[in-house]
Design a binder for these strands. Sequence first.
DNA 1: GGCGAGCCGTACCGTACGTTACGGTTCGCC
DNA 2: GGCGAACCGTAACGTACGGTACGGCTCGCC
Lengths: 217, 217
Amino acid sequence: MLHIVPDIDTSETLTERQKAVLDAALRLLVEEGDQLTMTAVARRASCSKETLYKWFGDRDGLLTATVQWQASKVRVAPVDAKGLDLASLTVSLERFASDWLKVISSDTSIALNRVAVGHAGSGKDNLGAVVLENGRFALAKRLKPVLEAGRQAGLLDFADAETAFRSFFGLVARDVQIRLLLGDRLELTEATIGGDAVRATQQFLALFGAKTGPQGL
Amino acid sequence: MLHIVPDIDTSETLTERQKAVLDAALRLLVEEGDQLTMTAVARRASCSKETLYKWFGDRDGLLTATVQWQASKVRVAPVDAKGLDLASLTVSLERFASDWLKVISSDTSIALNRVAVGHAGSGKDNLGAVVLENGRFALAKRLKPVLEAGRQAGLLDFADAETAFRSFFGLVARDVQIRLLLGDRLELTEATIGGDAVRATQQFLALFGAKTGPQGL
DNA sequence: GGCGAGCCGTACCGTACGTTACGGTTCGCC
DNA sequence: GGCGAACCGTAACGTACGGTACGGCTCGCC
């Protein structure tokens, strides 16, 4: 269940220069994937390898720092769940769905997930845990309060928020992430994503919407 | 969309000895992931490296052959869609869901997908395409006729079989595959899988079941 | 029985890359 | 202006591993 991720807020302890180096590493990671070399990172970041090793220990350390650095940039403001009605709940859910689809279809996310998946195979480090914690689990942590609020407002009906969330997750993501990770050229335009978000939300509401008579009374 | 996979039925052109070697490679792949070495494969298979190179060309060739070999073992008999009623359709869908969950949670599938994802990053070969073709796309190819038959029989209602399939896929798989690939220790017992299959099927029927009055008339 | 093909085991080669070492430069600080 | 810390660029080291070469063994075949 790996909920044990060192919750160090890296964005604080990093100098500007270090952030710049990690940004370079991140760009290289997106371009080259896991076979990026320390030399290439040093060259791209215009720094010496000695510095890389002093700051990040070794290659895995650099990779981990890069992933955490990207993760720290993604933090979004939680949606407030006040004055909830069916319309605003629907909008919220569509927002979540759309945001999530944009994330998992972004080059950065794909590259990071690829590296993390590769490393999860040879349990050297916990890159997988980091990605999971800042991806799927972070999403759940932000969405569940909305679901709970929807239930409180009598709009949703479910026994377990976790289960409801996972169904929503499935309806939104479907086969998109695995196909992208495996190299399928899936065109996700702004329009496609919007449509999918609406569809997933409607399906979720059909499954978990409260049946209090013709809704609205 | 990469539907272009050399559809060579490898299981025919391989000698018994070669299959044994690939089985050894497969076992090693599950244990070691992508950082398995040619020497290790040779040792495990009790063959010489020379033989590996003669048979499979290079490392990527061996990996590809291994993945295809595993894929060729998974081919299952298509479900026949005769005399369909709601009960038998439900059973079929539950079967598919349960089988799919078993596949994606198996050590073999996880290892293979990890390797394929890693290779998709550095577009050296089409391992990702092979895995996709024998996984998600093969599933669709087997399930769609069932869905179409369900529609013919007036049990299901959908405009596009592909869309319906993808929703079913999402309801079944949810976050399971990505979590497993990222190293999450997700315990999928026989009972859990059975329950999830039933739940996913019910949800799918709720979304796509034909509303011809109280069903059964 | 002799022969050649195919294969095993192992030694060997070349290289790429992680890691370290070091001389030279910048820059803050006294 | 002088000192030292931090850092750049590059060269050098060590090693792991992909790929090749080769000697010896087995076995089917003439």
